[in-house]
Design a protein around this nucleic acid. Sequence first.
DNA 1: TTTGATTGTTTCGTTATAGGAAATAATTCA
DNA 2: TGAATTATTTCCTATAACGAAACAATCAAA
Lengths: 317, 317
Amino acid sequence: MDSLDLIQIFREVARRGSFSATAAAQGVSPASVSKAIAQLETRFGLRLFHRTTRKVSLTDAGQLLFERSSALLELVDLAQGELHERATRPSGRLTVTMPYGLVHTDLPAMLGDFLLRYPEVDLDLSVTDRVVGLAEEGVDLAFRVGPIEDQNLIVRRLLPLDFVAVAAPAYWRAHGKPAHPRELCTHAQLAWSLHGQAPRWHFEVAGKPFELALQPRVNATLAAPLITLATQGLGVMWAPRRALAQWIDSGALECALEPFSPSNVWLYAAYMQRRHNSAALRVLLTQLDAFAEAFKCRDGQRPQDTQPSSGAAAPQA
Amino acid sequence: MDSLDLIQIFREVARRGSFSATAAAQGVSPASVSKAIAQLETRFGLRLFHRTTRKVSLTDAGQLLFERSSALLELVDLAQGELHERATRPSGRLTVTMPYGLVHTDLPAMLGDFLLRYPEVDLDLSVTDRVVGLAEEGVDLAFRVGPIEDQNLIVRRLLPLDFVAVAAPAYWRAHGKPAHPRELCTHAQLAWSLHGQAPRWHFEVAGKPFELALQPRVNATLAAPLITLATQGLGVMWAPRRALAQWIDSGALECALEPFSPSNVWLYAAYMQRRHNSAALRVLLTQLDAFAEAFKCRDGQRPQDTQPSSGAAAPQA
DNA sequence: TTTGATTGTTTCGTTATAGGAAATAATTCA
DNA sequence: TGAATTATTTCCTATAACGAAACAATCAAA
């Protein structure tokens, strides 16, 4: 029989002073109780109870075990309770990664809302463009952009990232707003790409992908400094509208080529296929769904009206 | 699988960071380890390890369980160690009963020797003439006199209690030493018997029991005061030689009718038939055997030479 | 890139165990 | 003395444990 059940039965017998009463209380047969005690006694090689058919009392050795078993079972209950809470109530530490490009979207604010709602959840937010292995590094959730290939991951498609061309209003006035993506070739390009990768801008023309080969004026591995350059009127930048919302809203940057935004680039949330996810992750996923749903409605009604749900971080210097 | 084994395997995996290594260390198949962890995870509804085929690391929840499980397993080891010691090393409390009549024999001294040899054994010595139920009152060992009838008890025959008639030397000089038990009828009798029982003295004449009906000058439920009276020359007393050894040796009392001592009255040690006796009781039983064996040899060689192994208690006032 | 080695998981068949109903033994109460 | 209560034993069946081997996935070396 299970050791802990054994000890629990032992404790119950010691408290009640009766085998049959314990059997009734625990919902098992008297035979089981008798065999359980016998098993404990053979295991230790000691008699634990003085027994008559009418009275049951602890042996000297039984007294010793009784004291220990109480402490032990309390510890077990404590641990079980903690883990049950962890499984039930959202708490503990979540590890989330996102690429740099999403830092200035409303995603951090959404995570903030989440943390406000669940005060017992702590967050490890790892911002990196490196594609991390979720299992290897113990990452609970990864925000990714674009189609995701990994078969082992569960992927939720959250939001369409409508990429647009932006520049300072002064720049547009000086060089003219393009009417077609190919006209961007003649503009100063502020391009963003990962290390060693050639920057490419994707559009959609008449439902078909249109890819632009670039000779950028500036190429950076991080978008934030490019934004500063763009507001200075140094050129055209291509980025998700969502990542530039505060500058567009304030009028520092102005969109162009919005009808040619590619429709297949989305924000995804990826997590491991697991039999048992923590309550914290489960609840984060539902909040993500709600978040996506809210924007789906809003975007559906007024596509131009997206903005952060609360104050976003200031741009990097 | 057994809960404690489960937790132990979990701890081992957490320490080693490998399923196969723990399987090898614990001497089980890798399949068992895998299933054990899976079982724990379903039990708590939480994932405990991040696993790749190459690396295994603790989850947030796993870390929590790891801390608890260490404390828990240490507690289990502690309790098991204590009980094993109790089963192996003589320690703990022994409960022993003996009748009043044996208090002035060398039995207490023997118990003293036993306690000296085993310092970790404590003793509850219950002196009573009541026949106690060993199981009911948690008595480990009972010293009894005479044939024992209880079927549930294991009985060891220790020593023959050679009953003799004694009186003060002055008394014998005044009234003459008897040559046959029946002559005691004419003597002043100092008799000892339990409450409500008629006192009877048993002898053996030519191999046949000879019982003497008494009209005692003094009848008491306890032998000790009678000894005082006997030394004062008030009459004849009938008791085990062993219980009177110090007075006989000092010359305060003098034996008579020694050839008629009954041969079927022995000192017995009775204990419960138990599957698992404590080490303390086991070792006490072997010491009793050695004690009996030593006296068997000594009595066989020099029947008159019995005396306490060390200083006995003073007689009651 | 391919091959081979290592590791975690699953499947499957055998074996052992758990668990309870009923019979048994021992004791107490009316 | 008879009836009721209680611990233990026996017996049977459904369940679980266990390891071997097949499988899947990953890493290291050629």
